[in-house]
Design a protein around this nucleic acid. Structure first.
Lengths: 223, 223
DNA sequence: CCTTTGCATTTTGCATTCATTATTCAGATT
DNA sequence: AATCTGAATAATGAATGCAAAATGCAAAGG
């Protein structure tokens, strides 16, 4: 028998969840924005039923806030939420790193090294966008190697919740250098397959990320 | 002004999410059971619209599986899922323990000691149900003291996903003693405010819990 | 006897409709 | 002028209706 790929069947609600997540992620819908159902219905050409199902799912994920009879808003992230979420993300990355060390092949490590080198090159060149892309790829690769799908999914969902903040403010050069240094140390721990060192660095790295977000939030309040 | 409590206003969908979660948790709806919309609608006296919204939310939480045009089933937990979820829960408990050590007052510790002592007493008496209740309370109390709401919510959601398994099989006496011993060591680390020791014990404790679930799953396959 | 095919029934996906609750804004009141 | 009132408007919550898909089952064929 020819192994044909399964025909993918998706509900409108599922499709809408992904589209809306995308809009929030790329900043088309910004934290605090009101979500008006008829508006989005027209935009996507669907009725309110599947849209409302999608909104309920996004609310469960924490991406939007629903208040009864008053509609939905894209969730704002508070400094308190940052303080809660980043340590969690730190633990998840630490676990991913640990699993990664236990499972990675020489080829995996080589790939990470390559991604890292390219990322550093973009940093030296001051190219923000490709740096960010490579940065994300490194983290994704670590989760892939870790081989724990639930872990990756959980991390991803927390990442999106905090990501909404990030496109708003740019890192300072010092913070950027700090992040690169964190990554150097992450790579060193991976090379040495030193799980406990990696654990510490990952959590410190996320602590730094939280600091950056705090600075960004403060900047928004002031400016 | 008299500070009247806010009038709680909830949508039917929200109510249904909680009711259904309850049904799954207490085993009224068991893993693998088919969920027929009209049936539940009649049971709860609501129309399909809010019920479907609730099902979408539960699916997002991983409590049920939805396949397009084929309806919903209560999610089964596979050995692979256990292998993925328990290390994550271990990390979350480890973080909670760490935060707990940093924040707990003498009164907090005393409360934990009291709960622990009662739990051990029930173990000695072989009283399973109250032991389980106290066990849960100890863990909840640690999360409460930790003071990270997002962490507690995340842990709770993973706990429910794995809880469906537990009412099915009973711990062996050896496993039960092992769990009690873990708790003794957890209390010792809390007393000493030794974060790194607590970290290790928490993760080991969850490793043991995963083993118990694996044994339960195997038992189901065999018997 | 087992498998396959076609039809009746059930169930799901989505649109539409109706009722209830917010929001807006013109006009009245202090 | 600022605030309050309330009707008009718009948005949300939930039920109903309808078309498409899946399921179950009986009869036909191997």
């Amino acid at each position: 028998m020819h192994d044909s790929p399964l025909i993918e069947r998706r509900s409108l609600a599922t499709e809408l969840v992904e589209r809306l997540r995308g809009l929030i992620q790329e900043g088309q819908l910004r934290p605090g924005d009101k979500i008006v159902e008829p508006e989005l219905c027209e935009r996507f050409g669907v009725s309110r039923t599947p849209l409302r199902e999608a909104l309920k799912v996004l609310a469960a994920e924490g991406l939007i806030d629903l208040s009864p009879n008053r509609g939905a808003r894209v969730a704002r992230i508070s400094p308190e939420a940052v303080e809660e979420l980043f340590p969690i993300m730190g633990m998840l990355e630490a676990l991913a790193g640990e699993l990664c060390i236990g499972r990675m092949s020489a080829a995996d490590l080589a790939l990470l090294e390559a991604l890292h080198a390219r990322m550093v090159a973009h940093w030296r060149a001051g190219e923000w966008a490709p740096y960010g892309r490579l940065n994300r790829q490194v983290h994704e690769e670590i989760f892939r190697i870790a081989g724990n799908g639930a872990l990756a999914a959980l991390y991803q969902s927390l990442l999106i919740r905090t990501h909404a903040i990030r496109f708003m403010a740019r890192k300072t050069p010092e913070r950027w250098a700090e992040a690169v240094d964190d990554h150097e140390r992450i790579m060193a721990a991976l090379r040495a397959r030193d799980a406990s060192a990696l654990n510490l660095i990952m959590r410190e790295h996320l602590r730094h990320k939280a600091d950056v977000v705090h600075e960004a939030l403060k900047q928004l309040d002031d400016g």
